[in-house]
């Protein structure tokens, strides 16, 4: 059975101003059981907690207005975009990527789901985290990439944001990093924008997932995320959201040594977040009620200690 490890990794790509109130870390998912190597990089993701608390974050809310006049035989539903900060204080999974070299054929979805679920476990099981945070604060979002042309241009930006700031978003993000989106939002429309007034290519891009992100969308749906009524300000890609109350709660277990000989027969896979450290393990173990029994080899490979405690979730997706 495989042992996967999600852990903090060095973050070479940070540029520009950062949201100082948010914790923002890059994590890597490695396969420690890959043959012929000490570990194999499967993918990466970025975790941000309490976003937008110092540097505001912006999204368009996609609302709806109805124009109705029975005597004119008129009934039209119109989408309306309203710029706002609706996910402030939520957490975010971002930059979710599968490493091509570490992606065995047919396991892309498995890796994506492991990244997402492990990320959620890290966010949900923060030692010492306040229990009185609001349900809104416990939301986790993923901004999915929207539609792009072959040359990388965004029809949504060209049809909306570009009229308010004539700049290439990719250039802006290269210069300012993720903060560029906050900076440029100051130039974007503050009043509701009726979607039907946009050019057709921009209208059609509202809430559409870019082709490169379709697998990620499926993985998010499989892990309980759903489309919110928000889209990104650059390419109009949808924002998917997971609410804490709909997520399976992890249970706290003690890690114990498995009885030799029986472990292999009854072991299942678990996502396990030790009480110490910012990491999640995906490993085989035996459910013993209040404890999870791990093989000695697993203890050794993972550097875990018997008697320690962890937040655990069953993980049936892989292995």
């Amino acid at each position: 059975m495989s042992i996967w490890h999600l852990h903090r990794t060095s973050d070479p790509g940070r540029a520009g101003e950062v949201d100082t109130a948010a914790s923002d870390h890059l994590f890597a998912l490695d396969d420690l059981s890959a043959p012929g190597a000490d570990s194999l990089r499967l993918g990466t993701l970025r975790l941000r907690r309490r976003i937008g608390m110092s540097l505001p974050r912006y999204w368009y809310h996609v609302g709806e207005v109805v124009h109705s006049a029975p005597t004119l035989d008129l009934f039209r539903r119109e989408k309306v975009l309203l710029l706002g900060n609706d996910f402030t204080a939520a957490s975010e999974l971002a930059d979710i990527r599968v490493e091509a070299a570490g992606c065995p054929p047919g396991r892309r979805m498995e890796i994506l789901e492991a990244l997402i679920r492990a990320g959620l476990l890290l966010l949900d099981a923060v030692p010492g985290a306040s229990n009185d945070s609001s349900e809104d604060d416990r939301r986790v979002i993923v901004e999915l990439p929207g539609v792009r042309r072959i040359n990388g241009a965004s029809p949504f930006w060209e049809g909306l944001g570009g009229f308010f700031h004539d700049a290439d978003p990719d250039d802006g993000e290269r210069e300012y990093g993720p903060a560029w989106r906050s900076h440029v939002a100051a130039l974007l429309p503050r009043h509701p924008v009726v979607v039907s007034l946009l050019r057709s290519s921009a209208r059609e891009a509202v809430g559409e997932v870019g082709e490169s992100a379709l697998a990620l969308r499926d993985a998010l749906l499989a892990q309980g995320f759903g489309p919110s009524r928000h889209v990104g300000i650059i390419d109009g890609g949808p924002v998917y959201c997971s609410e804490r109350r709909f997520r399976q709660a992890a249970r706290n277990c003690t890690l114990v040594a498995a009885t030799a000989g029986r472990q292999a027969e009854t072991a299942q896979s678990w996502l396990l977040r030790p009480d110490h450290g910012d990491e999640v393990w995906c490993l085989p173990g035996q459910d013993q009620g209040g404890s999870i029994a791990l093989a000695a080899a697993v203890f050794e490979r993972c550097g875990l200690a018997a008697g320690g405690t962890a937040a655990v979730l069953p993980w049936n997706r892989c292995h």
């Binding site: 308010f164 700049a167 802006g172 560029w180 100051a186 130039l187």
Partner: peptide, 12 residues
């Protein structure tokens, strides 16, 4: 609209 950080403004 003005973005201080970008040193840009627009008149809409």
């Amino acid at each position: 609209h003005r973005s201080q950080a970008l040193g840009a403004s627009n008149r809409i």
